[in-house]
């Protein structure tokens, strides 16, 4: 990949990667750190990564950087303790997409990741398998569980409204 193609990757994928990370972490600063880390890693391997495969490389790197950051900073547990258990959501979101994005925060990390990759970027099961190092069966199971949770969440909101 040339420097021009690298810069083109930023134009084409930076928003998507950032969206994926931000929705996964719900932490703006952490997301920016991961963005820097992800694209620095791509730049280091700019001569080895084909432009056509850059998007997959970026999502894979971002995902693993995110996991590493979670582990290093233990933010995942803190975040779950501080937010997931206490958030009151039933009367905050009216728009369905907003409701879903609120609900996605409540999903376990891995379910959230696979659903975001599936819905945001339309990745196939096999592509999600490559990014997350999960088996295809695991990906299907996590997507299924995530969908069921979201469906129940939406149903509960609709019942309240």
């Amino acid at each position: 990949m040339t420097t021009s193609e690298y810069n083109l990757c930023i134009d084409q994928h930076a928003d998507k990667i950032y969206r994926f990370i931000l929705k996964s972490t719900n932490d703006e600063e952490l997301s920016k750190d991961i963005m820097q880390d992800t694209f620095e890693k791509l730049w280091v391997k700019v001569n080895l990564v084909d432009f056509e495969k850059a998007k997959s490389y970026l999502f894979t790197t971002a995902y693993h950087s995110m996991i590493d950051m979670f582990r290093k900073e233990k933010r995942k547990r803190e975040y779950e303790n501080n937010n997931f258990g206490t958030e009151s959501h039933h009367d905050q979101y009216v728009d369905l997409n907003e409701q879903l994005h609120a609900a996605i925060k409540l999903l376990p990390e891995i379910q959230r990741t696979v659903i975001l990759l599936r819905d945001y970027e339309g990745y196939s099961y096999s592509e999600i398998t490559e990014i997350t190092n999960l088996s295809e069966s695991q990906v299907k199971v996590y997507i299924y569980r995530g969908r069921v949770f979201l469906k129940k969440y939406i149903g509960s909101i609709e019942a309240v409204i």
Binding site: D15, K23, D119, I154
Partner: peptide
């Protein structure tokens, strides 16, 4: 179930 498919939040930009 048809509703629980997310669409990207285009307002989020880097």
């Amino acid at each position: 179930f048809k509703k629980v498919f997310l669409s990207p939040d285009s307002t989020i930009q880097y």
